[in-house]
Design a protein around this nucleic acid. Structure first.
Length: 254
DNA sequence: AATGATGCCAACCGCCTCCAT
DNA sequence: GATGGAGGCGGTTGGCATCAT
C-alpha cells in the first residue's frame, strides 16, 4: 500500500519560503524548540506541511549554518568522508556542523564530482580517493570524534545565524545576544576547523588525489577504529573489508 | 541587446527507519 | 509481532542566475 504524500492536502503551500514565513517559523522554534514538526503548521498557521517546515529549519534557518564558498579543507573532508561512507550526506554533515547535508550534497553534485572525474584519468586507477589509515585525515577525524562526538541533528543555540533575509536577522538579534555560552562552543568548532594549519596542504583537493603517499600499515599497525569505521562495522558489516580492500588496492596502484 | 545553454541551489518526493500502540 | 504515524534521508527537479554566442 502506498502512503499518500504528507503534503498532498489541499491548501498546503509549496515553493520558495517568504521572509514572513521564515519569521513565523523561527519565532515558533525559538519558543518551543525544534521537534514535533507535526504540530508546527497547526500552531503557527503556516500553510506548509511539517516536512517542509523541518527542511526549511534544518537547511536554512538553523543557527550556526555557514553558507557560501566551501574551503579547500571542507572540500577535503567531504571528499574523504564520501570515499569512506558513500553518499551518506547526513553522516558527512555531522562532521561539518556548519554545513547542512543538503548543502554538502549539492556541492558534491555540482562541484566535487566533476573535479574528481576530471582528475581520475590523471591518477590512473579506479579508486577515487586514497582510503588509507595513514592518511592524515583519518587521524584528524579520529581526533575530532574523540574530542567532540559526532553531532547528528546538531542543534546549536543561535550564534552565527546566517540568513539572507535581513528582517529575519533583525528579529533574531535578541535571540542571538542571549546565548553567549553556546556561541563559545560554536566558535570553538569553527576555530578548530580553521586552525589546523598543518593539515592544510593535505586537505587541499589536489593533494587528496595526489599519489605520493606513505606505504600502508599492516593490520597490526592500524590505529584504533575511528567512529566512522565503528559505524561502518556496526551498520554495514562487510563494508569495512570492502573499503580496506579499496585502500590496499589504491596503495598498490601507486 | 537578445537568446539559448549551462550552472546552481532551494525545495519537493518518495522510501526507509524508528517508535508508540 | 503487526501496524501506523512521524521524522529522517537521499535522489531529483524546477526555476532563477549567469555565461556564451
Amino acid at each position: 500500500m502506498v502512503r499518500p504524500p504528507c503534503c498532498d492536502k489541499v491548501g498546503v503551500k509549496k515553493g520558495p519560503w517568504t521572509p514572513e514565513e521564515d519569521i513565523i517559523l523561527v519565532s515558533y522554534i525559538q519558543e518551543h524548540g525544534p521537534g514535533n514538526w507535526r504540530s508546527v503548521p497547526a500552531n503557527t498557521g503556516l500553510m506548509r506541511c511539517s516536512k517542509s517546515c523541518r527542511l526549511r529549519w534544518t537547511n536554512y534557518l538553523r543557527p550556526g549554518i555557514k553558507r557560501g564558498n566551501f574551503t579547500p579543507r571542507e572540500e577535503g573532508i567531504i571528499i574523504h568522508l564520501q570515499a569512506m561512507l558513500g553518499n551518506k550526506w547526513a553522516a558527512i554533515a555531522s562532521y561539518l556542523p556548519q554545513r547542512t547535508d543538503n548543502d554538502i550534497k549539492n556541492y558534491w553534485n555540482t562541484h566535487l564530482k566533476k573535479k574528481i572525474k576530471k582528475l581520475q584519468p590523471a591518477i590512473g586507477h579506479n579508486c577515487t580517493i586514497p582510503l588509507d589509515s595513514t592518511f592524515p585525515m583519518h587521524n584528524y577525524i579520529q581526533e575530532k570524534v574523540t574530542e567532540n562526538p559526532p553531532l547528528p541533528n546538531l542543534c546549536l543555540h543561535p550564534s552565527t545565524y546566517a540568513s539572507s533575509a535581513d528582517n529575519i536577522s533583525k528579529l533574531l538579534e535578541v535571540w542571538t545576544r542571549s546565548s553567549s555560552k553556546s556561541t563559545e562552543f560554536t566558535r570553538d568548532i569553527q576555530s578548530d576547523l580553521s586552525n589546523q594549519d598543518g593539515l592544510d596542504s593535505f586537505l587541499l583537493f589536489e593533494n587528496l588525489v595526489g599519489d605520493e603517499r606513505e606505504p600502508s600499515m599492516d593490520s597490526e599497525q592500524h590505529p584504533p577504529f575511528s567512529y566512522l569505521e565503528k559505524w561502518l562495522l556496526e551498520e554495514n558489516s562487510g563494508s569495512i573489508e570492502r573499503l580496506m580492500g579499496m585502500s590496499s588496492s589504491a596503495n598498490s596502484a601507486t
